[in-house]
């Protein structure tokens, strides 16, 4: 199975709503002072988009028994358009249920991977 991609447009407003005001995720100057080159989306926000993709694919099989593990390799900034994607890499039977594992990533509008990792859960019956 291949989860459907999830697409999001990143804006400063969405970053501030998720992370609050006056920090590296919502204030350009604060982020520049820390050597970050400007505001960047919080990691949790980006993992949330990958979780959304897995939830749409697996539903309760991700809510109970789901796992996700990612590394942040490239910043995501206001104006970026990101897409969560996955490809299945394994499947196995576990207590009568089908457990599936995926390679997952979040890429930007240039096709550059920003977040990479793996996810797993139980396929719908």
């Amino acid at each position: 199975m291949e989860p459907d991609p999830v697409k999001k447009t990143i804006t400063m407003g969405k970053m501030a709503r998720y992370s609050g005001a006056g920090n590296i995720h919502s204030d350009e100057e604060t982020a520049r002072e820390r050597g970050l080159g400007g505001a960047l989306a919080q990691g949790g926000q980006l993992v949330g988009y990958l979780n959304e993709m897995m939830l749409k694919a697996l539903g309760p099989g991700f809510l109970s028994g789901g796992e996700i593990s990612v590394t942040f390799i490239r910043p995501v900034r206001p104006g970026d358009e990101v897409t969560a994607r996955a490809t299945q890499k394994a499947a196995a039977s576990e207590n009568g249920r089908k457990r599936v594992e995926f390679e997952i990533w979040l890429e930007n509008q240039n096709g550059e991977k920003c977040v990479v990792g793996t996810a797993a859960g139980f396929a719908p019956p």
Binding site: L36, F62, L63, S64, G66, E67, I68, S69, V70, F72
Partner: peptide, 15 residues
């Protein structure tokens, strides 16, 4: 001190 996230993992056991 100041920091940013490098890695994140979750295991979801129950809703």
């Amino acid at each position: 001190g100041p920091n940013i996230r490098a890695k994140q993992a979750f295991s979801f056991y129950a809703p």
